[in-house]
C-alpha cells in the first residue's frame, strides 16, 4: 500500500496553509496596530502593554479558576458514573452510556440558554408549578459563579464521561483476576490497576472540558458571564482596529496550550492520550 504515500502531500499542504501560515500572520499582527489584516500597512504597536493590563490578567485568572473548578467537579461526578457503567454486568451498557452523552448532539448554546433561564426569576418551571399551586423558590444564580459553574458542568459532563468510560472499558477483564490472584482486594485493585490505567482517559477528559471552558465565550455569555478571556478576544475581533490585540491574546493561549500538551507528552510518550 506504499503507493498511497503521495496522498499525504496534499494534507500537508492543506495543514500548512490553514495552520502554519495563519500562525505566522498572527505573530506579525500581534506586534502591529492594523486595520483588519492588512499586515503590510500596519504600524508597530506595543500590544503587550494592553495585554498585561489588569483587565486582561483578571480575565485570564477568572477563566482559569472557572474551568479548573468545572473540570474538577466534572471529574468527581463523571468518574464514578463511567466506572459504574463500564463495570456493570449489564447487557445494555452502551445504551445507558449513549443516553448520557446524547445531549452532545443537541444545540449547546440553546441548552445553556435553557439552564440559564432556570437561574432567573420567573422561568418556565416556576410558571408551570404556579399553575398547580406550588411556588418554586427562585435560584437567582444568573451571572453568579454558582450559576456559571453549574451550567458549565451540565454542558461539559458528557465530554468527561465518554473518554473515561472508553479507557475503563478497554481494560482487559483478566487484569482484575490477576490483581485479585496476587493478593489485592477490591480497593487495592482499584488504586493500583484500574485508576492508573484509566489515567489516559482522564487526561483526555480534562482536555475536552478544560479547554472549551477556559477559552470559549458562547456558553459563558449565555450564563451571564462576560468577564472571561474568550469574550475579550471576540470583542477585539469585532472591531477592525484592535485585531492586533486579539491576535496577541490568541497567541498567548496557543502558547499555553502547547506548553500544557508538552507536559502531557512527557508523561504519555506514545501520544495515545487523544481518542
Amino acid at each position: 500500500m506504499n503507493r498511497f504515500k503521495k496522498m499525504a502531500i496534499p494534507y500537508l499542504i492543506w495543514m500548512i496553509i490553514l495552520v502554519l501560515i495563519p500562525i505566522v500572520i498572527l505573530i506579525i499582527m500581534s506586534f502591529q496596530r492594523t486595520k483588519g489584516i492588512k499586515i503590510f500597512e500596519g504600524t508597530f504597536n506595543n500590544n503587550f502593554k494592553i495585554i498585561f493590563s489588569k483587565d486582561v490578567m483578571q480575565r485570564l485568572w477568572l477563566s482559569f479558576i472557572y474551568s479548573a473548578v468545572v473540570t474538577v467537579f466534572c471529574l468527581i461526578i463523571a468518574y464514578p458514573v463511567a466506572y459504574i457503567i463500564a463495570r456493570a454486568n449489564f447487557k445494555h451498557r452502551f445504551l445507558v452510556l449513549s443516553f448520557l452523552i446524547l445531549p452532545m448532539w443537541s444545540n449547546t448554546l440553546l441548552r445553556t440558554k435553557g439552564i440559564a433561564s432556570l437561574f432567573m426569576e420567573g422561568n418556565i418551571f416556576t410558571s408551570l408549578f404556579e399553575k398547580i399551586g406550588i411556588t418554586l423558590p427562585t435560584l437567582n444564580w444568573y451571572a453568579t459563579p454558582m450559576g456559571v459553574i453549574t451550567g458549565m458542568i451540565s454542558m461539559y459532563l458528557p465530554f468527561m464521561i465518554l473518554p473515561i468510560y472508553n479507557s475503563l472499558e478497554k481494560i482487559d477483564k483478566s487484569l482484575y483476576d490477576a490483581s485479585d490472584d496476587l493478593g489485592a482486594n477490591a480497593f487495592k485493585t482499584f488504586w493500583k490497576v484500574t485508576f492508573p490505567i484509566s489515567l489516559k482517559g482522564i487526561t483526555t477528559g480534562i482536555i475536552l472540558v478544560f479547554l472549551p471552558c477556559a477559552t470559549g465565550f458562547g456558553v459563558a455569555e449565555q450564563l451571564g458571564e462576560n468577564g472571561l478571556i474568550g469574550t475579550y478576544i471576540k470583542t477585539q475581533f469585532d472591531n477592525e482596529a484592535t485585531y492586533g490585540v486579539g491576535a496577541l491574546v490568541s497567541l498567548i493561549i496557543l502558547v499555553i496550550i502547547i506548553g500544557a500538551l508538552f507536559i502531557v507528552g512527557k508523561v504519555d510518550k506514545e501520544g495515545e492520550t487523544l481518542l
Binding site: 482487559d172 483478566s174 487484569l175 483476576d177 490477576a178 490483581s179 485479585d180 490472584d181 496476587l182 493478593g183 489485592a184 482486594n185 490497576v193 492508573p196 490505567i197 489515567l199
Partner: peptide
C-alpha cells in the same frame, strides 16, 4: 474464598500483565 485469600497464583492465558507497570 476469594482469590486474594488463597495460597494459589495463576499464570493467565494471555498473561494479563499490567500495562501501566
Amino acid at each position: 474464598l476469594p482469590p486474594h485469600k488463597r495460597p494459589i497464583n495463576t499464570v493467565f492465558q494471555r498473561y494479563a500483565l499490567f500495562p501501566h507497570l
